[in-house]
């Protein structure tokens, strides 16, 4: 067997894939959050819709997004394969199950948490990407029209009203609840996943690891919380105060 194939099929190699794709997705989350926070600007969706237009038209970003889809799938499929392999390796279950002291609930349930995130991704993509493309939601009219925005330099830019779709979705209580539950799941997934990715890469150091862990903990609480803030504020009809206008990129 070729060394590279062997690497990718070895237990450590497969974990390496999980780690690297995981770190990529962690980075992506930051970008995604940055864009989304613009939804909270009190500007009737102008900044967000323009940003969304840029994201869908820029060829580099388009290519990157295919990479992103691939990595999400790779992370998910590999994760499920590993879960299955481990299930087989474990064989007979213990009659008395006890979580080992000092281990986190999250670490013991990564496959479950990952699955929650995966299901959420399906809903999320269906809700926005698919719905936007095929105009499927009840109040679709609001998103169909192109809105003309006057940019700072005076030029006019036409953009789809994704903001309208968001506004509609987050007025539905069940969607908001799905988002909140999923963000909690994501938070737990990251709670373990963040530092685990570094451990798998062997990036463990007496001096730096405590710092990495701290960043991981902050990240895994803060990022999902900020994501969750959007549906909550929409549902409550709240926006950033006028003095706070957040521009990403």
């Amino acid at each position: 067997m070729n060394w590279f194939v062997r690497l990718l099929t070895s237990s450590l190699g497969r974990k390496l894939i999980m780690s690297l794709t995981g770190l990529f997705l962690i980075t992506f989350l930051l970008v995604h959050l940055g864009g989304n926070l613009q939804l909270l600007n009190n500007d009737e969706g102008k900044s967000f819709n323009l940003y969304a237009k840029m994201m869908t038209t820029n060829p580099i970003i388009k290519i990157t997004s295919y990479g992103l889809y691939f990595f999400i799938l790779l992370h998910a499929v590999q994760g499920l394969l590993i879960w299955n392999k481990n299930r087989v390796a474990t064989g007979t279950k213990y009659a008395v199950k006890k979580k080992s002291p000092g281990t986190t609930w999250a670490s013991n349930n990564m496959a479950l948490l990952g699955t929650i995130v995966l299901v959420f991704l399906g809903i999320h993509m269906g809700d926005f990407w698919f719905a936007m493309k095929y105009q499927t939601w009840p109040d679709a009219e609001a998103g169909r029209e192109l809105i003309k925005y006057t940019l700072d330099d005076g030029t006019i830019s036409e953009a789809k009203n994704l903001y309208g779709k968001v506004n509609w979705s987050f007025s539905q209580a069940w969607i908001v609840i799905v988002y909140l539950v999923s963000m909690i799941g994501l938070g737990f997934h990251l709670w373990h996943g963040f530092e685990s990715a570094f451990q798998t890469l062997g990036l463990n150091h007496k001096k730096y690891t405590p710092f990495i862990r701290l960043v991981g903990k902050i990240y895994s609480v803060l990022i999902p919380a900020l994501f969750a803030l959007i549906p909550i504020m929409y549902f409550l009809g709240m926006r950033f105060p006028d003095w706070l206008v957040f521009h990403f990129i």
Partner: peptide, 16 residues
Amino acid sequence: DKEGFGMCSNIKACEA
């Protein structure tokens, strides 16, 4: 790997 052990997910129950 050949012996059929599972894969580590850094739960650290082993250490505990």
